[in-house]
């Protein structure tokens, strides 16, 4: 049942990922990308990480993609105006090929498939995924968390300065 479900979701993910790069209209590409993100969220659910799934949909599909769609809408790009360069395709395929090799090596050689450490699947299921993330984030990783918040604050101040002409 789960394998069948995985196969269906993967099929949708792959088809929509291909549509992202083949669609002529950028809005349709953006829609396909949203679909791909949604499929990724489904994978997170299947990996017992519901919090990650919800955040994936909220942040990527709900916030970042809205920005991209906004940009496309406001610039009013109807049909993809960029020309196709063969060397770009070549460069893209080389990068894609190396990424594939990298992923395969990572899956085979490392412990990505069978993670070790204190956080086992049973523990996550018992305590709750969001609770574990929250506890770790505000105790063990408090300093990186605070540094990230300062980084975000800098970004907000920067965007205000860029947007306002006279402060």
């Amino acid at each position: 049942m789960e394998t069948l479900f995985f196969a269906i979701v993967s099929l949708v993910a792959i088809i929509s990922a291909i549509l992202v790069i083949t669609c002529k209209n950028p809005i349709n590409s953006a829609l396909s990308l949203i679909m791909t993100f949604f499929c990724l969220a489904t994978y997170y659910v299947m990996l017992d990480a519901p919090f990650m799934a919800a955040v994936q949909v909220m942040v990527y599909a709900g916030a970042i993609m809205v920005l991209i769609v906004f940009t496309i809408m406001l610039l009013n790009i109807r049909v993809n105006a960029t020309q196709k360069h063969s060397h770009r395709i070549l460069l893209g395929s080389i990068i894609g090929f190396f990424t594939l090799i990298n992923t395969i090596v990572l899956l085979v050689k490392s412990q990505a498939a069978k993670p070790v450490g204190p956080f086992t699947g049973d523990m996550i299921r018992n305590i709750g995924h969001s609770e574990l993330i929250g506890r770790e984030m505000f105790t063990t990783f408090l300093l990186p968390f605070e540094i990230t918040s300062i980084l975000l604050l800098v970004a907000i101040v920067g965007s205000v300065i860029l947007a306002k002409k006279n402060i």
Partner: peptide, 8 residues
């Protein structure tokens, strides 16, 4: 998450 998709 779902309500953020409704915007589209």
């Amino acid at each position: 998450a779902m309500s953020s998709l409704g915007v589209y």
